[in-house]
Design a protein around this nucleic acid. Sequence first.
DNA 1: TTCATGTAAACAAACGATTGCGCGTTTTTT
DNA 2: AAAAAACGCGCAATCGTTTGTTTACATGAA
Lengths: 340, 340
Amino acid sequence: MSNPPTIKEIAKKLNISISTVSRALHDHPSIGLRTKMRVQQLAKDLNYEPNQTAIFFQQRKTFTLGVILPELSEAFFSSAISGIEDTANKHKYSVLLGQSHDNEEREKQIVETMKNHRVDGLIISIAKNTVNYDHFEMLKKYNIPIVFFDRIPNLPNIHYVACDMESGTIQAVNFLLKNNHRIIGMINGPEKLFASQQRVEGYIKAMKKYRLKFDPNLMVASDLTREGTETAMQSLLSLRRKPTAIVVFNDYVALDAVQYARHKKLRINKDIVFVSYSNLPLSHYTAFPPLASVEQFPYQQGQKATETLVELLGKSNEQPEATTYYKVILESQLMLNQNK
Amino acid sequence: MSNPPTIKEIAKKLNISISTVSRALHDHPSIGLRTKMRVQQLAKDLNYEPNQTAIFFQQRKTFTLGVILPELSEAFFSSAISGIEDTANKHKYSVLLGQSHDNEEREKQIVETMKNHRVDGLIISIAKNTVNYDHFEMLKKYNIPIVFFDRIPNLPNIHYVACDMESGTIQAVNFLLKNNHRIIGMINGPEKLFASQQRVEGYIKAMKKYRLKFDPNLMVASDLTREGTETAMQSLLSLRRKPTAIVVFNDYVALDAVQYARHKKLRINKDIVFVSYSNLPLSHYTAFPPLASVEQFPYQQGQKATETLVELLGKSNEQPEATTYYKVILESQLMLNQNK
DNA sequence: TTCATGTAAACAAACGATTGCGCGTTTTTT
DNA sequence: AAAAAACGCGCAATCGTTTGTTTACATGAA
């Protein structure tokens, strides 16, 4: 018999019924001590392991969390998935993984796959150009909860975990102002992103506090490609009021921006300084690191998102329709990069 | 009816049998065109999706690959998982993820979980101090194939994908020799690792080719901690024949080694040069990058491992015991880090 | 003795889908 | 026109487990 043992086999060998075996293995009170022991002993001897697929099927629960991320190889997301996996594991959940490659079609398809796999819930950071959210809405009908994190869709009733970029941006701009920069540029990301809007808000608030006027010319957007960033830099550097400091959307963009500045013979941290939002580990090892970075704690975001989802899954059994929506906000934090 | 529709429902509504519905949806030839159409139409209208958990259960196949990696947040592994996910997806497989955190106990427990989930196969890069392989052997009984990659256990009959470090090491040492270095140190990893042994081999072969004698003092090991690396550096730098170049086990170790050297007032790339094995992306952005790195192609390793596993899974249906063991070797390759 | 109570175990349905087999009806063959 | 083949579909078992209900027996009280 090469097949894994089943409770049926145990039942037959002990000449008792299947249900008795099942109950014995679960320490059900209505089973006598004698048979309970005999069953448990034999189960151990046979190396019995319950067939989870059968249980999943029967219980309509898979103890599996679906996770959909844009790009697994990006440091930010790989930290996040690490936090997710750790937390899921702690709560006895497994993680089913998919990467959208920032492609809406693929995202949809993965959602479909995960739904068919009957994951208990989903954790999603959406593709950057997803504009249609039907595939998320649809899951509500199937009672599969979603917790979004970091990249969250613009939808009314959703659960999410995110890092507040406004506070970090305020800290960043404050830091620059304190260091006597007065003309501070910003290279932001796509305007649609909530995170972009928060950066703008933070920037403006910080400036206001110093009673400085907001100059819209200092605010440019990049589509996050190298070319987009170069165009952005170009427009900033060609201003009459040329910035002495630039706050950049993220580390990847910052690397391009720094390179562009160096190409233009600007001395980094002298003629111009950069502050960024960190995605890269070890960015303090880089040759021309941003002076400071706003840390977004991806690992913690992953943790929180998972904890939220697990809690949601626990509750769903109690009151079916007590839907309060979780909005967990982590504070971002400015970190100075001490030069090595 | 909030529950997802089933073929049973379809059958009832159309007043036909369940089996007919099932066959109609699979385009079975024994179903008439008329009913086939009616079924397919209704299925579409009801938004019918087959319950995968039921199918998994019935078919004893989950179309899921288990993946166990030491640390998801490390760049090397996050690239690998990216390759794995992409390839699995292409072949209609899903990915169930676990991270061992280089902990043998945890690794065992994850293997157990994955077995119970009835994954069809496993892709594993083992924890660095796993010495007992029983949990892997055990899977053979359950007919769950494993493909190891990068970090492979010392077992006779296994499938694996790995990067040949010997050739890369030869290239690295050759490169240094051509640049007139004659005293070349090596900071290697734990001796048990196959990858460490390959590095030694490569080093010795390259030296032999140049008819240079192998000086064992130039070969030291680090346990991959900062302290271990510093001890290693110390012993190299205190040699009478002091190396002018050092080949370092990996980028993380290299960062520590470089820092130690700088601390000792050595000028990087002048007094001493480093060559490393790359784990970090963008290492050319770092302040004092190794002159060159041996690339190990983690994404491709992931791809290959997945393709191998998928092939294995396809075959297992044909001839149960035609066990040839796949040993896929990718060539590592030296990449020069052009300074920016 | 008889009826209620309690205990230990068996029975059987259900979860959703697949599939070998069989059976009636129509079509083809001779 | 009768026998054979083809078609179209239903029956029922199966995968492994859980769980509500029932049954058998023993024990105690009335």
